[in-house]
């Protein structure tokens, strides 16, 4: 089955993909495709600027609704430059941790109060 190609540039309408609200638009498109059992090829062609806030919402949030296995098997990123890929990798690692252990942040605050 051919993958559905989603252009981040087209969804956002801008080469500056920095705001969380714009990331939400991308998240919704990917999520609806995955729910329909489609494979997704996410293209970052023509994207000049990215932030972690954008990627947290666009991609990180997928780990709330889908398993790691499904995301790994169904989502592919293309035409992303090397520094942006490094940022995406951090976003993914942080997201996995965030949803795996939701109490971790509360614990770190509690520990800080007790120290």
């Amino acid at each position: 089955m051919d993958a559905l190609r989603l252009s981040v540039f087209n969804i956002v309408g801008n080469s500056f993909c920095v705001e969380a609200d714009d990331g939400q638009k991308v998240f919704e498109r990917i999520a609806s495709a995955l729910k329909a059992d489609k494979r997704v090829e996410l293209s970052f062609q023509n994207v000049e600027m990215l932030t972690s806030a954008f990627l947290n919402t666009a991609v990180g949030r997928l780990y709330r609704d889908f398993t790691e296995e499904l995301i790994r098997d169904s989502l592919q990123v293309v035409q992303m430059d090397a520094t942006d890929l490094a940022l995406l990798k951090r976003v993914v690692e942080t997201a996995k941790l965030f949803y795996k252990d939701p109490e971790r942040l509360q614990r770190s605050i509690n520990e800080l109060m007790e120290s």
């Binding site: 972690s52 947290n56 990180g60 949030r61 709330r64 942080t94 997201a95 965030f98 949803y99 942040l105």
Partner: peptide, 16 residues
Amino acid sequence: GHTTKSDTPGGIGLAI
């Protein structure tokens, strides 16, 4: 990874 958002991961921007 430290963020005050409850439904979306975060806490990368300031660390970067």
